[in-house]
């Protein structure tokens, strides 16, 4: 969990949860069904392009809009390992951490310098993201609280062990 490596997919500002996972599919409850519509509202070809290990790179306010946890479930189930953005909407951010999806906020991220298809390495511990074209961006590493949840693979496994201890 200290390093995440993968292929980059670029998106713009204000990618809302309706674009990540359209409301008309909210009745679905199984991860593999949910994965079939990943990012469909932003790029209809994404579900066929995405491969396990993908890293989504976006602009400001990623995940704004509705509180649907489907938005995180769809990304995880489709194999997305991390989302990197200049900023995140708060409910999406909480949902992602809770389900163990790595979300990295890099306010200085310059989308004009990176391209779809680049490879990238995210160094979680030291707060550095390096792209295959040589571009590097730094970020503030996670707080203890968040790191504990991410390392447990999400809040569900964390609580499961807590409940057992009781």
């Amino acid at each position: 969990m200290n390093q995440i490596e993968g292929k980059v997919f670029i998106f713009g500002d204000n990618i809302d949860t309706d674009q990540i996972y359209p409301g008309r599919y909210l009745e679905l409850t199984e991860p593999q069904d949910i994965a079939a519509h990943v990012m469909e509202g932003a790029d209809a070809t994404f579900p066929s392009k995405v491969s396990p290990g993908a890293i989504i790179v976006a602009g400001k306010n990623f995940g704004c809009g509705s509180s649907r946890e489907h938005a995180v479930i769809t990304l995880l189930a489709a194999g997305v390992r991390a989302v990197v953005a200049r900023s995140f909407a708060r409910i999406f951010y909480r949902n992602a951490i809770n389900r163990g999806l790595c979300v990295v906020e890099i306010p200085e991220l310059d989308l004009s310098k990176v391209k779809d298809g680049h490879e990238a390495v995210i160094d979680i511990e030291n707060g550095v993201m390096a792209f295959s074209n040589g571009c590097e961006f730094v970020f503030v590493p996670f707080s203890e609280h968040i790191l504990e949840i991410l390392k447990a693979g999400g809040v569900i496994s964390l609580y499961r062990s807590k409940m057992k201890e009781r």
Binding site: S67, V72, I91, N95, V155, I156, M163
Partner: peptide, 17 residues
């Protein structure tokens, strides 16, 4: 507002951070 898992924590504990 929160997502599903946060709400489930409230069901379990009555509290949330």
């Amino acid at each position: 507002g929160v997502g599903a898992t946060d709400l489930a924590i409230i069901l379990l504990t009555g509290r949330l951070w």
